[in-house]
């Protein structure tokens, strides 16, 4: 039985003269969280687009849930779900209508019930019948994720899921991702933030100049770096920690 959710061998892709992916190799275990780390423009989104059948690869063998992305794109689409970099929600529809629409497009039997459950789960029940254009960034992201969970796909792609979110919303997204993995869903995410990969991922791969230059668990990656030196540095709270501390106090009141 297949226990790999994703297998990528020798993946190459160029845009005109720009050689973005120069032979990428990696595998993702079923039920794990895999983080692809890389700077802006490293080709993370290109990899996601190829894996989700939005873009054709130039060469290489890419299989998702056992299906070849080039020859069996329909089968791939059956078993995956994509949350892109920009919230893919319909602004004019309400949150509920967005979810019902996706449930219908996935040909599920009880779209209303599915929408209700997801709205509850993502704390959007109060905003359910408001147009998405009135939602905050965090709410939009939650709805976006909820839409990706319609039909319980086995594999979820998250392209920079927390970029542009405030710290609170980011922590919320992390919680959701962890829950997903606990329920057996495979999560493939890209991020620019080391901390995010550290927080979430079972395995981390670093994409740099078109190749994976490191791939392993956090502990394995840490071994690649020079041994830890003990230094004493006064720990200043980061602005984020201050923000969260204040917010936390507010909520306790």
């Amino acid at each position: 039985m297949q226990n790999k959710a994703i297998q990528v061998k020798g993946l190459q892709k160029s845009y005109k003269k720009l050689h973005v992916l120069k032979g990428v190799y990696f595998e993702v275990e079923k039920g794990s969280i895999f983080a692809l780390l890389g700077s802006n423009g490293a080709g993370k989104t290109t990899i996601i687009k190829i894996l989700t059948t939005l873009l054709k690869q130039d060469s290489g063998v890419t299989t998702v849930n056992g299906f070849d992305v080039t020859s069996k794109p329909d089968n791939v689409r059956q078993s995956i779900s994509l949350t892109g970099q920009f919230a893919a929600v319909d602004e004019i529809l309400t949150g509920r209508e967005n979810l019902i629409m996706i449930a219908k497009l996935r040909h599920l039997t009880n779209p209303r019930q599915i929408a209700d459950n997801l709205l509850k789960r993502f704390g959007l029940i109060d905003a359910a019948d408001r147009r998405v254009s009135t939602y905050s960034g965090g709410m939009r992201r939650r709805l976006d994720l909820a839409m990706s969970l319609v039909g319980k796909p086995q594999l979820i792609f998250l392209d920079e899921p927390t970029t542009g979110l405030d710290p609170e919303a980011r922590i919320e997204v992390w919680k959701i991702v962890k829950e997903l993995a606990d329920n057996g869903t495979t999560v493939f995410l890209t991020t620019q933030y080391l901390e995010e990969a550290e927080q979430l991922a079972d395995r981390i791969a670093i994409l740099h100049e078109g190749r994976i230059i490191a791939n392993g668990t956090l502990a394995e990656l840490k071994k690649l770096f020079p041994p830890v030196k003990v230094e004493y540095i006064e720990k200043q709270p980061t602005l984020e920690e201050i923000f969260l501390a204040i917010i936390g106090k507010e909520e306790e009141k």
């Binding site: 059948t53 939005l54 059956q78 995956i80 779900s81 892109g84 602004e91």
Partner: peptide
């Protein structure tokens, strides 16, 4: 412009 096209296209429709 918005991501909704990509969402549709990554679905089995």
């Amino acid at each position: 412009q918005r991501g909704i096209f990509e969402r549709f296209h990554s679905m089995p429709i």
